[in-house]
Amino acid sequence: MAAITAEPHVSKRRAQLQKAILPYLYLFPAFLIMSVITFYPLIYQVVLSTTNFETRHLLKGLRSEDLEFVGLDNYKAIIDGSLPVQNFNFFRVLTYNFWWAITNVMVHVPAGVLIAILLNTQGLWFKRIYRAVYILPVVIPPLVVATVWRNIFNENYGALNQLITTITQFFGAEGVVRIRWLTEYKPPIPWLLPNSPLTLAYYAMMIANFWLGWPFMTLVATGALQSIPKELFEAASIDGASPTQQFWNVIVPLLRPAMVPAAIYGFMMSFNLFNFVYFMTNGGPARSTELLVTFAYDLVRNLRLYGVAAAFAVIVFFVALIVFLITNRITRATESYT
């Protein structure tokens, strides 16, 4: 009798136990791998950032006899600019990085939306062809785009100088235009960002990244525009709204939920635009177009200051965390709009 009543109780408990363990079984493979190659490196990075790890420690790693614990010295050196690295100032790079990302998004989003509206015009001829052409920059790998643009901006044979030469000669000017797009250090507008001189290379990269950036925004905006129901405009015009009012009160608010995430995506992409910057200017001239990520890469690949590189990456992590918290706030705030 006792055995009979105990049996279902035991199997029920076993089933419950199984149910409790099951999620962890599903998670196990991913977490096993991540703990070795994702989480452990993150911890290793923090340990590394408190040492003077350099090339000579590569053979024995953390067990090297002459590896020293330097505490927060690496962090201090990065912040106060006492690194043995030319032309490096942490706050200048940080300012430039934010400026770079913000100015890019500020240009890409309005241009993308306006072009989407233009393409959406009723009765426009060749709409499909334009749509197909305008998508091309999204489709080509940024790495290829950057190398091609770097070629275009070449001072001697670049296509842009050639284009300008063609135009100036058409208007009767003599000589060949030789603008040093990517190598000139003197900033054309010195007061624009006093903390961090914006060289001609910055403008060149803005042009190239504009080419790369707006079509994506147009893509998103077109999708959002086409999902606005026609009835909304009819209702608005019955209520007596002028087309201007319709633009601001129908189109803009209805585009916003789609454009804010796209803008934030664009911001994050520009903020960490490694391949593009590395292929186009390599951070130069004189580190004036260096982003946090490209400098982090330079620290480990060329300067080989592994301890400092680890400390720098930890700082980059916290910058990324702050950026995420802010952007997350913005998306949350706009989510309730719909």
Binding site: P41, Q45, F274, V293, V300, A313, V316, F317, A320
Partner: peptide
């Protein structure tokens, strides 16, 4: 949150 290059060193 970490850019790829951020964990390159370790």
């Amino acid at each position: 949150l970490m850019p790829v290059i951020g964990t390159a060193t370790p």
